[in-house]
Design a protein around this nucleic acid. Structure first.
Lengths: 276, 276
DNA sequence: TCCAGTGATACCCCTGCGGTATCGATCGGC
DNA sequence: GCCGATCGATACCGCAGGGGTATCACTGGA
Protein backbone atom coordinates (compact mmCIF):
# COMPACT_ATOMS: atom_id res chain seq x y z
CA UNK A 1 0.00 0.00 0.00
CA UNK A 2 1.36 3.42 -0.98
CA UNK A 3 1.28 6.41 1.34
CA UNK A 4 -0.53 8.38 -1.33
CA UNK A 5 -3.43 5.93 -1.30
CA UNK A 6 -3.46 6.00 2.49
CA UNK A 7 -3.52 9.80 2.61
CA UNK A 8 -6.39 9.83 0.15
CA UNK A 9 -8.36 7.30 2.12
CA UNK A 10 -7.81 9.06 5.43
CA UNK A 11 -8.92 12.37 3.89
CA UNK A 12 -12.17 10.88 2.59
CA UNK A 13 -12.78 8.94 5.79
CA UNK A 14 -12.33 12.07 7.86
CA UNK A 15 -14.31 14.40 5.63
CA UNK A 16 -16.96 11.78 4.85
CA UNK A 17 -17.26 13.57 1.52
CA UNK A 18 -15.31 12.98 -1.70
CA UNK A 19 -15.57 16.56 -2.93
CA UNK A 20 -14.28 18.17 0.27
CA UNK A 21 -11.56 15.54 0.62
CA UNK A 22 -10.39 16.17 -2.94
CA UNK A 23 -10.25 19.90 -2.26
CA UNK A 24 -8.26 19.32 0.91
CA UNK A 25 -5.85 17.11 -1.03
CA UNK A 26 -5.53 19.63 -3.83
CA UNK A 27 -6.71 17.25 -6.56
CA UNK A 28 -9.95 16.84 -8.48
CA UNK A 29 -12.71 14.54 -7.30
CA UNK A 30 -12.65 11.89 -10.06
CA UNK A 31 -9.06 10.68 -9.49
CA UNK A 32 -9.87 10.47 -5.81
CA UNK A 33 -12.90 8.26 -6.46
CA UNK A 34 -10.77 6.02 -8.65
CA UNK A 35 -7.95 5.82 -6.12
CA UNK A 36 -10.35 4.70 -3.39
CA UNK A 37 -11.89 2.09 -5.69
CA UNK A 38 -8.47 0.77 -6.54
CA UNK A 39 -7.51 0.64 -2.88
CA UNK A 40 -10.70 -1.29 -2.13
CA UNK A 41 -9.92 -3.74 -4.92
CA UNK A 42 -6.37 -4.22 -3.70
CA UNK A 43 -7.34 -4.73 -0.06
CA UNK A 44 -10.24 -6.87 -1.18
CA UNK A 45 -12.79 -5.16 1.01
CA UNK A 46 -15.35 -2.39 0.81
CA UNK A 47 -14.01 0.45 2.98
CA UNK A 48 -16.67 3.12 2.49
CA UNK A 49 -20.40 2.82 2.10
CA UNK A 50 -21.48 5.59 -0.28
CA UNK A 51 -24.93 6.85 -1.06
CA UNK A 52 -25.57 10.09 -2.83
CA UNK A 53 -26.36 11.59 0.58
CA UNK A 54 -23.59 10.35 2.81
CA UNK A 55 -20.32 8.45 3.03
CA UNK A 56 -20.05 5.99 5.90
CA UNK A 57 -17.13 3.90 7.15
CA UNK A 58 -17.46 0.12 7.04
CA UNK A 59 -15.86 -2.05 9.74
CA UNK A 60 -12.65 -2.65 7.79
CA UNK A 61 -12.73 1.05 6.87
CA UNK A 62 -12.68 2.04 10.51
CA UNK A 63 -9.71 -0.26 11.10
CA UNK A 64 -7.84 1.25 8.18
CA UNK A 65 -8.58 4.77 9.38
CA UNK A 66 -7.11 4.10 12.83
CA UNK A 67 -4.13 2.08 11.60
CA UNK A 68 -3.59 4.31 8.60
CA UNK A 69 -3.35 7.47 10.68
CA UNK A 70 -0.72 5.82 12.85
CA UNK A 71 1.17 4.62 9.78
CA UNK A 72 1.11 8.04 8.14
CA UNK A 73 2.38 9.62 11.34
CA UNK A 74 5.22 7.11 11.36
CA UNK A 75 6.12 7.92 7.76
CA UNK A 76 6.01 11.65 8.43
CA UNK A 77 8.13 11.12 11.53
CA UNK A 78 10.73 9.23 9.51
CA UNK A 79 10.99 12.06 7.02
CA UNK A 80 11.06 14.85 9.61
CA UNK A 81 13.65 13.20 11.83
CA UNK A 82 15.86 12.38 8.87
CA UNK A 83 15.67 15.95 7.67
CA UNK A 84 16.51 17.21 11.13
CA UNK A 85 19.39 14.78 11.47
CA UNK A 86 20.72 16.29 8.25
CA UNK A 87 21.37 19.50 10.11
CA UNK A 88 18.62 21.92 9.27
CA UNK A 89 16.55 22.85 12.30
CA UNK A 90 17.09 22.26 16.01
CA UNK A 91 18.85 19.12 17.21
CA UNK A 92 16.22 18.17 19.73
CA UNK A 93 12.63 19.28 20.20
CA UNK A 94 10.97 18.97 23.58
CA UNK A 95 7.25 19.56 23.83
CA UNK A 96 5.34 20.41 27.00
CA UNK A 97 1.95 21.78 27.90
CA UNK A 98 2.01 25.55 28.24
CA UNK A 99 1.89 26.50 31.91
CA UNK A 100 2.36 22.98 33.29
CA UNK A 101 5.34 21.72 35.30
CA UNK A 102 7.20 24.95 34.64
CA UNK A 103 9.65 24.58 37.47
CA UNK A 104 10.41 20.96 36.64
CA UNK A 105 10.85 21.81 32.98
CA UNK A 106 13.31 24.56 33.83
CA UNK A 107 15.30 22.19 36.05
CA UNK A 108 15.44 19.53 33.37
CA UNK A 109 16.61 21.99 30.75
CA UNK A 110 19.25 23.46 33.06
CA UNK A 111 20.54 20.07 34.10
CA UNK A 112 20.79 18.90 30.50
CA UNK A 113 22.47 22.10 29.34
CA UNK A 114 25.20 21.48 31.93
CA UNK A 115 25.76 17.99 30.51
CA UNK A 116 28.89 17.48 28.41
CA UNK A 117 27.89 17.05 24.78
CA UNK A 118 24.52 18.72 25.23
CA UNK A 119 22.91 19.87 21.99
CA UNK A 120 20.55 22.75 21.33
CA UNK A 121 17.07 22.00 22.68
CA UNK A 122 14.04 23.62 21.13
CA UNK A 123 11.15 23.92 23.58
CA UNK A 124 7.72 23.79 22.04
CA UNK A 125 4.70 24.64 24.16
CA UNK A 126 1.26 23.49 23.16
CA UNK A 127 -2.24 22.81 24.39
CA UNK A 128 -3.24 19.55 26.07
CA UNK A 129 -3.56 16.49 23.88
CA UNK A 130 -1.31 17.89 21.15
CA UNK A 131 1.93 16.52 22.51
CA UNK A 132 1.29 12.89 21.67
CA UNK A 133 0.64 13.86 18.07
CA UNK A 134 3.83 15.91 17.80
CA UNK A 135 5.85 13.09 19.29
CA UNK A 136 4.26 10.54 17.00
CA UNK A 137 4.76 12.39 13.74
CA UNK A 138 8.32 13.47 14.41
CA UNK A 139 7.82 17.17 15.05
CA UNK A 140 9.09 16.51 18.58
CA UNK A 141 11.56 14.05 20.09
CA UNK A 142 10.68 14.16 23.77
CA UNK A 143 7.59 15.23 25.71
CA UNK A 144 6.58 15.99 29.26
CA UNK A 145 3.27 14.24 29.83
CA UNK A 146 0.94 14.10 32.81
CA UNK A 147 -0.66 10.88 33.88
CA UNK A 148 -3.52 10.14 34.07
CA UNK A 149 -4.50 12.99 31.75
CA UNK A 150 -2.25 12.25 28.80
CA UNK A 151 -2.04 8.93 27.08
CA UNK A 152 1.45 7.44 27.17
CA UNK A 153 0.40 4.64 24.83
CA UNK A 154 3.12 3.70 22.41
CA UNK A 155 5.91 5.61 24.08
CA UNK A 156 8.69 4.77 26.45
CA UNK A 157 8.41 6.78 29.64
CA UNK A 158 10.24 7.55 32.84
CA UNK A 159 8.47 8.97 35.89
CA UNK A 160 9.85 12.32 37.03
CA UNK A 161 7.58 13.63 39.77
CA UNK A 162 4.26 13.02 41.41
CA UNK A 163 2.04 15.62 43.05
CA UNK A 164 -1.46 16.28 44.37
CA UNK A 165 -3.96 18.71 42.91
CA UNK A 166 -5.44 21.96 44.18
CA UNK A 167 -8.41 24.09 43.31
CA UNK A 168 -7.15 27.40 41.90
CA UNK A 169 -9.62 30.21 42.34
CA UNK A 170 -9.78 33.99 42.57
CA UNK A 171 -9.14 35.49 46.02
CA UNK A 172 -12.51 36.33 47.51
CA UNK A 173 -14.26 33.26 46.13
CA UNK A 174 -16.38 31.61 48.90
CA UNK A 175 -14.28 28.40 48.79
CA UNK A 176 -10.97 30.29 49.02
CA UNK A 177 -10.99 30.43 52.80
CA UNK A 178 -10.98 26.62 53.22
CA UNK A 179 -7.70 24.97 54.24
CA UNK A 180 -8.52 21.95 52.10
CA UNK A 181 -11.30 20.59 49.96
CA UNK A 182 -12.68 17.31 48.65
CA UNK A 183 -13.86 16.58 45.15
CA UNK A 184 -17.46 16.70 46.35
CA UNK A 185 -16.95 20.34 47.41
CA UNK A 186 -15.98 21.41 43.91
CA UNK A 187 -18.63 19.37 42.13
CA UNK A 188 -20.74 22.42 41.31
CA UNK A 189 -17.92 24.83 40.49
CA UNK A 190 -18.12 25.28 36.70
CA UNK A 191 -14.80 23.90 35.51
CA UNK A 192 -13.11 25.13 32.35
CA UNK A 193 -13.76 23.24 29.12
CA UNK A 194 -10.79 21.87 27.18
CA UNK A 195 -10.90 21.18 23.46
CA UNK A 196 -11.34 17.55 22.40
CA UNK A 197 -8.97 15.78 19.99
CA UNK A 198 -10.90 17.29 17.09
CA UNK A 199 -10.44 20.84 18.36
CA UNK A 200 -14.06 21.43 19.33
CA UNK A 201 -15.31 22.19 22.83
CA UNK A 202 -17.86 20.13 24.74
CA UNK A 203 -21.06 21.88 25.81
CA UNK A 204 -21.16 23.16 29.36
CA UNK A 205 -20.98 26.11 31.67
CA UNK A 206 -17.26 26.76 32.17
CA UNK A 207 -15.04 29.00 30.04
CA UNK A 208 -13.24 27.59 27.00
CA UNK A 209 -9.46 27.39 27.40
CA UNK A 210 -6.65 26.11 25.24
CA UNK A 211 -3.80 25.81 27.72
CA UNK A 212 -2.89 26.24 31.36
CA UNK A 213 -1.31 29.67 30.81
CA UNK A 214 -4.59 30.95 29.42
CA UNK A 215 -6.45 29.38 32.28
CA UNK A 216 -4.22 31.05 34.83
CA UNK A 217 -4.99 34.40 33.33
CA UNK A 218 -8.73 33.73 33.44
CA UNK A 219 -8.45 32.70 37.09
CA UNK A 220 -6.57 35.93 37.83
CA UNK A 221 -9.36 37.84 36.15
CA UNK A 222 -11.87 36.12 38.40
CA UNK A 223 -13.52 34.43 35.41
CA UNK A 224 -12.61 30.81 36.17
CA UNK A 225 -11.67 28.25 38.78
CA UNK A 226 -9.89 24.97 38.08
CA UNK A 227 -8.41 21.87 39.65
CA UNK A 228 -4.76 21.66 38.63
CA UNK A 229 -1.57 19.99 39.81
CA UNK A 230 -0.03 21.68 42.85
CA UNK A 231 2.98 22.83 40.86
CA UNK A 232 0.78 25.30 38.97
CA UNK A 233 1.01 27.28 42.23
CA UNK A 234 4.54 28.21 41.27
CA UNK A 235 4.94 31.89 40.46
CA UNK A 236 1.28 32.62 41.10
CA UNK A 237 -0.02 36.16 41.56
CA UNK A 238 -1.49 37.24 44.95
CA UNK A 239 -4.99 37.40 43.60
CA UNK A 240 -5.18 33.67 43.03
CA UNK A 241 -5.63 31.17 45.85
CA UNK A 242 -4.79 27.46 45.70
CA UNK A 243 -6.66 25.09 48.03
CA UNK A 244 -5.53 21.44 48.10
CA UNK A 245 -8.16 18.94 46.97
CA UNK A 246 -7.16 16.00 49.11
CA UNK A 247 -8.97 13.25 47.25
CA UNK A 248 -8.18 14.34 43.71
CA UNK A 249 -6.08 11.81 41.80
CA UNK A 250 -2.33 12.35 42.04
CA UNK A 251 -0.68 13.59 38.88
CA UNK A 252 2.59 12.06 37.68
CA UNK A 253 4.79 14.02 35.34
CA UNK A 254 6.64 11.68 33.00
CA UNK A 255 9.16 12.20 30.27
CA UNK A 256 8.21 10.28 27.11
CA UNK A 257 9.97 9.47 23.85
CA UNK A 258 9.35 7.26 20.81
CA UNK A 259 10.43 3.70 21.60
CA UNK A 260 12.71 3.14 18.62
CA UNK A 261 14.55 6.38 19.23
CA UNK A 262 18.23 5.73 18.70
CA UNK A 263 19.29 9.28 19.40
CA UNK A 264 22.14 9.93 21.78
CA UNK A 265 20.70 13.34 22.69
CA UNK A 266 17.32 11.90 23.69
CA UNK A 267 18.99 9.28 25.85
CA UNK A 268 21.14 11.91 27.57
CA UNK A 269 18.22 14.21 28.22
CA UNK A 270 16.11 11.39 29.66
CA UNK A 271 18.92 10.16 31.89
CA UNK A 272 19.50 13.67 33.07
CA UNK A 273 15.84 14.24 33.86
CA UNK A 274 15.48 10.91 35.66
CA UNK A 275 18.38 11.83 37.95
CA UNK A 276 16.61 14.90 39.32
CA UNK B 1 7.65 10.22 1.12
CA UNK B 2 6.20 7.20 -0.65
CA UNK B 3 6.24 3.68 0.72
CA UNK B 4 8.03 2.48 -2.40
CA UNK B 5 10.93 4.86 -1.88
CA UNK B 6 11.17 3.81 1.74
CA UNK B 7 11.22 0.12 0.87
CA UNK B 8 13.93 0.75 -1.69
CA UNK B 9 16.03 2.70 0.75
CA UNK B 10 15.68 0.13 3.51
CA UNK B 11 16.66 -2.63 1.11
CA UNK B 12 19.85 -0.84 0.04
CA UNK B 13 20.66 0.21 3.60
CA UNK B 14 20.32 -3.36 4.80
CA UNK B 15 22.16 -5.01 1.93
CA UNK B 16 24.75 -2.25 1.71
CA UNK B 17 24.85 -3.10 -1.98
CA UNK B 18 22.72 -1.71 -4.84
CA UNK B 19 22.87 -4.84 -6.95
CA UNK B 20 21.77 -7.24 -4.23
CA UNK B 21 19.11 -4.83 -3.03
CA UNK B 22 17.72 -4.54 -6.56
CA UNK B 23 17.61 -8.30 -6.86
CA UNK B 24 15.82 -8.60 -3.53
CA UNK B 25 13.29 -6.00 -4.67
CA UNK B 26 12.80 -7.69 -8.01
CA UNK B 27 13.83 -4.70 -10.09
CA UNK B 28 16.95 -3.75 -12.05
CA UNK B 29 19.77 -1.81 -10.46
CA UNK B 30 19.55 1.48 -12.43
CA UNK B 31 16.00 2.45 -11.36
CA UNK B 32 17.06 1.70 -7.80
CA UNK B 33 20.03 4.06 -8.05
CA UNK B 34 17.79 6.77 -9.42
CA UNK B 35 15.14 6.25 -6.78
CA UNK B 36 17.70 6.67 -4.00
CA UNK B 37 19.11 9.80 -5.62
CA UNK B 38 15.66 11.27 -5.91
CA UNK B 39 14.94 10.43 -2.27
CA UNK B 40 18.17 12.14 -1.26
CA UNK B 41 17.23 15.21 -3.27
CA UNK B 42 13.78 15.33 -1.74
CA UNK B 43 14.98 14.88 1.84
CA UNK B 44 17.81 17.27 1.15
CA UNK B 45 20.50 15.07 2.66
CA UNK B 46 23.00 12.47 1.57
CA UNK B 47 21.78 9.15 3.02
CA UNK B 48 24.39 6.72 1.68
CA UNK B 49 28.11 7.15 1.14
CA UNK B 50 28.99 5.10 -1.95
CA UNK B 51 32.37 4.11 -3.22
CA UNK B 52 32.83 1.42 -5.80
CA UNK B 53 33.86 -0.88 -2.95
CA UNK B 54 31.25 -0.29 -0.30
CA UNK B 55 28.02 1.47 0.60
CA UNK B 56 27.95 3.11 4.03
CA UNK B 57 25.11 4.77 5.95
CA UNK B 58 25.47 8.45 6.81
CA UNK B 59 24.05 9.83 10.08
CA UNK B 60 20.73 10.88 8.54
CA UNK B 61 20.72 7.57 6.69
CA UNK B 62 20.89 5.66 9.95
CA UNK B 63 17.99 7.70 11.30
CA UNK B 64 15.94 6.98 8.20
CA UNK B 65 16.71 3.27 8.40
CA UNK B 66 15.46 3.01 11.99
CA UNK B 67 12.43 5.25 11.51
CA UNK B 68 11.70 3.88 8.08
CA UNK B 69 11.54 0.29 9.27
CA UNK B 70 9.07 1.29 11.96
CA UNK B 71 7.02 3.23 9.42
CA UNK B 72 6.95 0.35 6.95
CA UNK B 73 5.86 -2.01 9.70
CA UNK B 74 3.05 0.38 10.54
CA UNK B 75 1.93 0.54 6.91
CA UNK B 76 2.04 -3.25 6.59
CA UNK B 77 0.13 -3.56 9.84
CA UNK B 78 -2.57 -1.23 8.55
CA UNK B 79 -3.01 -3.32 5.42
CA UNK B 80 -2.95 -6.69 7.22
CA UNK B 81 -5.38 -5.70 9.92
CA UNK B 82 -7.77 -4.15 7.43
CA UNK B 83 -7.69 -7.29 5.33
CA UNK B 84 -8.31 -9.41 8.39
CA UNK B 85 -11.15 -7.17 9.52
CA UNK B 86 -12.70 -7.81 6.12
CA UNK B 87 -13.27 -11.40 7.12
CA UNK B 88 -10.60 -13.50 5.55
CA UNK B 89 -8.37 -15.17 8.11
CA UNK B 90 -8.70 -15.55 11.87
CA UNK B 91 -10.36 -12.83 13.92
CA UNK B 92 -7.57 -12.55 16.44
CA UNK B 93 -3.97 -13.72 16.40
CA UNK B 94 -2.11 -14.26 19.66
CA UNK B 95 1.60 -14.87 19.53
CA UNK B 96 3.68 -16.49 22.27
CA UNK B 97 7.10 -18.03 22.59
CA UNK B 98 7.01 -21.76 22.00
CA UNK B 99 7.34 -23.60 25.29
CA UNK B 100 6.98 -20.55 27.54
CA UNK B 101 4.14 -19.84 29.97
CA UNK B 102 2.22 -22.81 28.62
CA UNK B 103 -0.06 -23.17 31.57
CA UNK B 104 -0.82 -19.46 31.75
CA UNK B 105 -1.49 -19.38 28.02
CA UNK B 106 -3.93 -22.25 28.30
CA UNK B 107 -5.75 -20.54 31.14
CA UNK B 108 -6.02 -17.28 29.24
CA UNK B 109 -7.38 -19.01 26.16
CA UNK B 110 -9.89 -21.03 28.17
CA UNK B 111 -11.08 -18.02 30.09
CA UNK B 112 -11.52 -15.98 26.93
CA UNK B 113 -13.29 -18.79 25.10
CA UNK B 114 -15.86 -18.86 27.90
CA UNK B 115 -16.47 -15.13 27.45
CA UNK B 116 -19.72 -14.14 25.71
CA UNK B 117 -18.93 -12.79 22.27
CA UNK B 118 -15.54 -14.51 22.09
CA UNK B 119 -14.13 -14.80 18.59
CA UNK B 120 -11.85 -17.40 17.08
CA UNK B 121 -8.29 -17.00 18.38
CA UNK B 122 -5.38 -18.16 16.29
CA UNK B 123 -2.35 -19.05 18.41
CA UNK B 124 0.99 -18.52 16.76
CA UNK B 125 4.12 -19.87 18.42
CA UNK B 126 7.51 -18.49 17.55
CA UNK B 127 11.07 -18.11 18.72
CA UNK B 128 12.21 -15.38 21.10
CA UNK B 129 12.44 -11.86 19.72
CA UNK B 130 10.02 -12.55 16.87
CA UNK B 131 6.88 -11.58 18.72
CA UNK B 132 7.50 -7.86 18.80
CA UNK B 133 7.94 -7.86 15.04
CA UNK B 134 4.72 -9.78 14.44
CA UNK B 135 2.81 -7.46 16.71
CA UNK B 136 4.29 -4.40 15.06
CA UNK B 137 3.58 -5.35 11.48
CA UNK B 138 0.06 -6.59 12.05
CA UNK B 139 0.56 -10.32 11.69
CA UNK B 140 -0.49 -10.59 15.33
CA UNK B 141 -2.86 -8.62 17.56
CA UNK B 142 -1.77 -9.67 21.04
CA UNK B 143 1.41 -11.16 22.46
CA UNK B 144 2.62 -12.78 25.63
CA UNK B 145 5.98 -11.22 26.44
CA UNK B 146 8.45 -11.83 29.23
CA UNK B 147 10.15 -8.97 30.97
CA UNK B 148 13.00 -8.28 31.19
CA UNK B 149 13.85 -10.46 28.16
CA UNK B 150 11.44 -9.02 25.63
CA UNK B 151 11.16 -5.37 24.82
CA UNK B 152 7.70 -3.97 25.49
CA UNK B 153 8.64 -0.66 23.91
CA UNK B 154 5.81 0.84 21.96
CA UNK B 155 3.09 -1.44 23.23
CA UNK B 156 0.46 -1.24 25.90
CA UNK B 157 0.91 -4.00 28.44
CA UNK B 158 -0.75 -5.55 31.43
CA UNK B 159 1.17 -7.69 33.93
CA UNK B 160 -0.17 -11.22 34.26
CA UNK B 161 2.25 -13.15 36.45
CA UNK B 162 5.66 -12.96 38.01
CA UNK B 163 7.95 -15.86 38.82
CA UNK B 164 11.49 -16.81 39.72
CA UNK B 165 13.87 -18.81 37.58
CA UNK B 166 15.39 -22.25 37.92
CA UNK B 167 18.28 -24.09 36.36
CA UNK B 168 16.91 -26.94 34.25
CA UNK B 169 19.37 -29.77 33.84
CA UNK B 170 19.50 -33.50 33.13
CA UNK B 171 19.06 -35.81 36.14
CA UNK B 172 22.48 -36.97 37.18
CA UNK B 173 24.18 -33.64 36.49
CA UNK B 174 26.46 -32.70 39.45
CA UNK B 175 24.41 -29.59 40.27
CA UNK B 176 21.11 -31.50 40.21
CA UNK B 177 21.34 -32.55 43.85
CA UNK B 178 21.40 -28.97 45.20
CA UNK B 179 18.21 -27.63 46.77
CA UNK B 180 18.93 -24.18 45.41
CA UNK B 181 21.59 -22.33 43.50
CA UNK B 182 22.95 -18.83 42.98
CA UNK B 183 23.93 -17.25 39.68
CA UNK B 184 27.59 -17.67 40.59
CA UNK B 185 27.09 -21.43 40.74
CA UNK B 186 25.91 -21.61 37.16
CA UNK B 187 28.49 -19.19 35.77
CA UNK B 188 30.49 -21.94 34.09
CA UNK B 189 27.61 -24.07 32.88
CA UNK B 190 27.57 -23.58 29.08
CA UNK B 191 24.21 -21.95 28.47
CA UNK B 192 22.33 -22.35 25.19
CA UNK B 193 22.82 -19.73 22.52
CA UNK B 194 19.76 -17.91 21.17
CA UNK B 195 19.69 -16.32 17.72
CA UNK B 196 20.11 -12.55 17.59
CA UNK B 197 17.63 -10.24 15.85
CA UNK B 198 19.37 -10.97 12.55
CA UNK B 199 18.94 -14.73 12.92
CA UNK B 200 22.61 -15.53 13.49
CA UNK B 201 24.03 -17.13 16.61
CA UNK B 202 26.72 -15.63 18.83
CA UNK B 203 29.94 -17.58 19.22
CA UNK B 204 30.23 -19.71 22.34
CA UNK B 205 30.13 -23.14 23.86
CA UNK B 206 26.42 -23.88 24.39
CA UNK B 207 24.07 -25.54 21.90
CA UNK B 208 22.13 -23.42 19.40
CA UNK B 209 18.38 -23.33 20.08
CA UNK B 210 15.47 -21.57 18.48
CA UNK B 211 12.76 -21.91 21.13
CA UNK B 212 12.07 -23.25 24.58
CA UNK B 213 10.41 -26.41 23.30
CA UNK B 214 13.62 -27.30 21.43
CA UNK B 215 15.64 -26.49 24.49
CA UNK B 216 13.54 -28.74 26.66
CA UNK B 217 14.19 -31.61 24.34
CA UNK B 218 17.93 -30.96 24.41
CA UNK B 219 17.86 -30.87 28.21
CA UNK B 220 16.00 -34.19 28.22
CA UNK B 221 18.67 -35.61 25.97
CA UNK B 222 21.30 -34.48 28.43
CA UNK B 223 22.81 -32.11 25.85
CA UNK B 224 22.00 -28.80 27.54
CA UNK B 225 21.24 -26.97 30.77
CA UNK B 226 19.46 -23.64 31.00
CA UNK B 227 18.10 -21.03 33.37
CA UNK B 228 14.40 -20.59 32.64
CA UNK B 229 11.31 -19.28 34.41
CA UNK B 230 9.92 -21.68 37.00
CA UNK B 231 6.79 -22.32 34.95
CA UNK B 232 8.88 -24.21 32.40
CA UNK B 233 8.79 -26.94 35.05
CA UNK B 234 5.20 -27.62 34.08
CA UNK B 235 4.73 -30.98 32.38
CA UNK B 236 8.40 -31.84 32.63
CA UNK B 237 9.70 -35.39 32.13
CA UNK B 238 11.31 -37.25 35.07
CA UNK B 239 14.75 -37.07 33.55
CA UNK B 240 14.95 -33.30 33.93
CA UNK B 241 15.58 -31.58 37.25
CA UNK B 242 14.79 -27.97 38.07
CA UNK B 243 16.80 -26.23 40.79
CA UNK B 244 15.72 -22.72 41.83
CA UNK B 245 18.30 -20.01 41.21
CA UNK B 246 17.48 -17.70 44.07
CA UNK B 247 19.20 -14.56 42.84
CA UNK B 248 18.18 -14.74 39.18
CA UNK B 249 15.99 -11.82 38.10
CA UNK B 250 12.28 -12.42 38.42
CA UNK B 251 10.43 -12.85 35.14
CA UNK B 252 7.13 -11.09 34.54
CA UNK B 253 4.78 -12.40 31.90
CA UNK B 254 2.81 -9.57 30.34
CA UNK B 255 0.13 -9.39 27.72
CA UNK B 256 0.92 -6.75 25.11
CA UNK B 257 -1.02 -5.13 22.27
CA UNK B 258 -0.55 -2.22 19.86
CA UNK B 259 -1.54 1.01 21.59
CA UNK B 260 -3.98 2.31 18.99
CA UNK B 261 -5.81 -0.98 18.86
CA UNK B 262 -9.52 -0.26 18.73
CA UNK B 263 -10.57 -3.88 18.55
CA UNK B 264 -13.29 -5.14 20.84
CA UNK B 265 -11.82 -8.65 20.78
CA UNK B 266 -8.37 -7.50 21.92
CA UNK B 267 -9.89 -5.50 24.77
CA UNK B 268 -11.97 -8.50 25.87
CA UNK B 269 -9.03 -10.87 25.77
CA UNK B 270 -6.83 -8.50 27.75
CA UNK B 271 -9.49 -7.86 30.37
CA UNK B 272 -10.04 -11.57 30.65
CA UNK B 273 -6.34 -12.29 31.09
CA UNK B 274 -5.85 -9.53 33.64
CA UNK B 275 -8.64 -11.00 35.78
CA UNK B 276 -6.82 -14.31 36.21
C1' DT C 1 -41.30 17.10 -11.91
C1' DC C 2 -37.36 19.57 -11.73
C1' DC C 3 -33.20 20.85 -9.61
C1' DA C 4 -29.24 20.62 -6.61
C1' DG C 5 -25.79 17.79 -4.95
C1' DT C 6 -22.81 13.77 -5.06
C1' DG C 7 -20.09 9.97 -6.60
C1' DA C 8 -18.90 7.27 -10.94
C1' DT C 9 -17.46 6.96 -15.76
C1' DA C 10 -15.27 8.21 -20.26
C1' DC C 11 -11.56 9.96 -22.37
C1' DC C 12 -7.20 12.35 -22.87
C1' DC C 13 -2.53 13.89 -21.66
C1' DC C 14 1.85 13.47 -19.72
C1' DT C 15 4.65 12.41 -15.79
C1' DG C 16 7.57 9.19 -14.04
C1' DC C 17 8.81 4.32 -13.18
C1' DG C 18 11.12 0.39 -14.98
C1' DG C 19 13.91 -1.78 -18.55
C1' DT C 20 18.41 -2.33 -21.56
C1' DA C 21 22.85 -0.74 -22.94
C1' DT C 22 26.74 1.49 -21.61
C1' DC C 23 29.94 4.46 -19.15
C1' DG C 24 33.36 5.72 -15.48
C1' DA C 25 35.74 4.81 -11.35
C1' DT C 26 38.15 1.84 -8.21
C1' DC C 27 40.70 -2.04 -6.64
C1' DG C 28 43.35 -6.54 -7.10
C1' DG C 29 46.34 -9.56 -9.48
C1' DC C 30 50.09 -10.39 -12.39
C1' DG D 1 51.61 -0.27 -14.56
C1' DC D 2 48.19 -2.44 -17.17
C1' DC D 3 44.09 -5.35 -17.46
C1' DG D 4 39.97 -7.23 -15.95
C1' DA D 5 36.36 -7.57 -12.57
C1' DT D 6 33.07 -5.13 -9.91
C1' DC D 7 29.89 -1.66 -8.86
C1' DG D 8 27.23 2.49 -9.07
C1' DA D 9 25.77 6.24 -12.43
C1' DT D 10 24.05 7.84 -16.86
C1' DA D 11 21.52 7.79 -21.36
C1' DC D 12 17.66 6.63 -23.61
C1' DC D 13 13.22 4.36 -24.50
C1' DG D 14 8.44 2.51 -23.77
C1' DC D 15 4.37 2.46 -21.30
C1' DA D 16 1.52 2.03 -17.08
C1' DG D 17 -0.99 4.80 -14.46
C1' DG D 18 -2.13 9.16 -12.03
C1' DG D 19 -4.36 13.54 -12.87
C1' DG D 20 -7.36 16.66 -15.52
C1' DT D 21 -12.06 18.00 -17.89
C1' DA D 22 -16.59 16.85 -19.35
C1' DT D 23 -20.37 14.30 -18.45
C1' DC D 24 -23.44 10.71 -16.66
C1' DA D 25 -26.48 8.41 -13.12
C1' DC D 26 -28.68 8.40 -8.95
C1' DT D 27 -31.05 10.33 -4.87
C1' DG D 28 -33.79 13.64 -2.13
C1' DG D 29 -36.19 17.64 -1.45
C1' DA D 30 -38.96 21.62 -2.98
Amino acid sequence: METRELRYFVAVAEERHFGRAAERLGIAQPPLSRAIQQLERRVGARLLERTSREVRLTGPGAVLLAEGRAALDAVDAAERRTRRAAGSGPDLVLVAKAGASEELLAKVLDAYAAEPGAVEVDVQLCGPGQQERLLRDGRADVALLHRPFDSTAGFDTEDLASEGQSLFLPAGHPLSTHAQLRLADVADVPLPRWPGPDGTYPNGAGPQVRDTAQLRQLVSLGRAAAVLPDSARHGLADDVVAVPVVDAPRVTTVIAWPPHSRSRAVADLVRCAARL
